[in-house]
Nucleic acid binder design. Structure first.
Lengths: 330, 330
DNA sequence: TAATATATGCTCAACGAGAGTATATATCAT
DNA sequence: ATGATATATACTCTCGTTGAGCATATATTA
């Protein structure tokens, strides 16, 4: 089943029946850049929200509308844009009950001095999902904070079978007990934590939260966001982690020329895990994704590294499906 | 770039600026079943439209709303549901200029006697995309109808470089000249044909269509649909063809028990190409996706085949990412 | 009874992915 | 100057997967 519709991911509620004319739509953007080896997202509202704005039908397509809107608001040139998901089941906390359809997009760019009326700022995406960064092995907070909370959640199930199912699901998603870590399951992990009420967003606006839940929450790492913006961010990260494996979109995040190690660090930053250096280079070069510029970079510390540039021609040569980047264990 | 935003996929037009309150949303469903080895979609309006209806916010989530709506309208139990794409750039032919956001979904089910007020009928999806069926090799109509049209389109480009780019793109997508056929590029192929005005939908409502274009159109195979429904169907087929390779959704289309050849025929129907029988069986069995029922089926003609059933447990055991189905050359 | 169609199982070669090792060339601390 | 260290670059090996062909078993049908 589609993780975005996992049955218990949010409390059931009956919304008012709206006539089609009463619906509002807005765009939400997950804008990603990778700066000095860290994946970052553009945020507004004291870093608690993703950039968003009302949907206007003044463009040829949704996508070109988003592109124009982002470039007007932030002056960022978007290298790659892709629709993520359309949400319509938001909890509009505090609002008048007006329901909003949110159409979310992923956009790749290069970090620039933030610009915009809404105090736009770049922030590392692992600030929101610290458990997703496995570049130096599983982060300590997984044992310290997540595993106890998930264990408690599993034990709280009604019967033995349900407890076992919960434990198995947690182990599968977080790589406990023999299970290997799968970096693509960002959204499923977030939704499990949400379901287990280990995420502040899950109990927001719910006054009947128990004391024990509050205690667990206070230990939960990761910066919260408004509404379901963190879920949208999780969707974007998951999509990007899957995409870089078979589609050369990483280059939209790189400067014009770069060393192979810089490229590798960028992939590692996105995937949240290390990759095997020799294999990475082999795959990049044998696919002819890059070409040498003839120059070298010396500010890398050791031996000067050759500078490369992306061969944009491959986008025309090959079907937009046949390229691979290795994301495997170190 | 996302194929759904390819720059020339439809004529640019400036739509009226709508206030957020004036937006209507509806759901469009691509409902798929596979009956006796043929992939089929549910259609309405004399088989020229996909089932669709107004979006109502009376449900917990968009997805559960769609599920309820489909099951109410058609009495089909949906085994698997996934959001496809949200379109907002439709040409609302003949309507009052009211703009509609269409949220499209893919749903898998088993074919049942059609039910519903809108003369709902099942129809083979290759009636709409005859060039997508390569189970017996490339269909003749590719040489006969598509290749000449695409050749003309390529030659009509402004300069030599553009002509070459067009030829290359057509060859890449349709498998001409050394290029191999990639069954996943359904949407890209449709959009290329649209761009080349080889699809009736592309010139609809445009009175200035040239005579030569009309001639080409009359030769274009494939049943048209209203609005951009054929594009949505292409999106669904592409998504499903990609999905079956790493996610065990085929079983949602199968009866409770089935033979391995039936399963293979189902995969072949969806992928539009044949698969190697011994390899198919090997992969299915070594992944423990199925278990024997102990019974055999004799109505297959030759030696009785063992009957299998899907092991639903794998959905809980494995991360929703680690299963493979072979879709390769025969 | 032979022909035929399907079911089922086995083998082999080619390729790619993962992992380890070795060498070259720079910077930096002493 | 020199050794330590960090990076860059190249090569090798093994294993599992994948594509492809062949062989055998068991039914129906002419």
């Amino acid at each position: 089943m589609d993780p975005l519709d996992s049955p218990n991911s949010r409390p059931a509620r009956l919304a008012a029946h709206s006539s089609p004319q009463g619906i509002a739509a807005d765009l939400v953007a997950v804008l990603v850049a990778v700066t000095s080896g860290e994946p970052r997202v553009l945020t507004i509202q004291d870093q608690r929200a993703l950039p968003s704005g009302p949907f206007e039908l003044a463009h040829r397509s949704l996508q070109s509308g988003l592109r124009a809107w982002v470039e007007r608001q932030t002056r960022l040139p978007l290298g790659y844009v892709e629709q993520l998901y359309t949400f319509a089941d938001r909890d509009r906390a505090g609002t008048t009950g007006q329901h909003v359809i949110s159409i979310s997009y992923l956009g790749l760019t290069r970090e620039q001095p933030a610009f915009g009326e809404h105090e736009a700022r770049w922030r590392g995406w692992y600030d929101y999902f610290p458990w997703e960064d496995h570049r130096d092995g599983p982060p300590l907070l997984m044992e310290k904070a997540l595993q106890p909370g998930l264990k408690a959640w599993a034990s709280a199930a009604s019967d033995r079978a349900a407890q076992r199912a919960r434990r198995q699901r947690a182990a599968m998603l977080f790589g406990f007990e023999e299970h290997s870590w799968n970096e693509e399951l960002v959204l499923q992990r977030y939704e499990l934590l949400y379901e287990a009420k280990l995420i502040p967003e899950a109990t927001r606006g719910n006054s009947s939260t128990s004391t024990s839940t509050r205690a667990a929450l206070s230990n939960t790492p990761g910066h919260p966001m408004i509404l379901d913006h963190r879920r949208i961010l999780a969707t974007g990260i998951a999509r990007l982690r899957a995409k870089i494996k078979y589609h050369p979109v990483v280059f939209e995040l790189m400067p014009d020329t770069f060393t192979l190690l810089q490229l590798q660090r960028c992939v590692e930053a996105l995937a949240g895990r290390q990759v095997h250096k020799p294999n990475f280079r082999r795959l990049i070069e044998q696919q002819e994704l890059v070409e040498e510029t003839g120059e070298t970079s010396q500010d890398t510390g050791g031996r000067p590294a050759k500078l490369f540039r992306f061969r944009r021609a491959v986008l025309a040569e090959r079907a937009i499906a046949g390229t691979k980047l290795p994301v495997s264990g170190a």
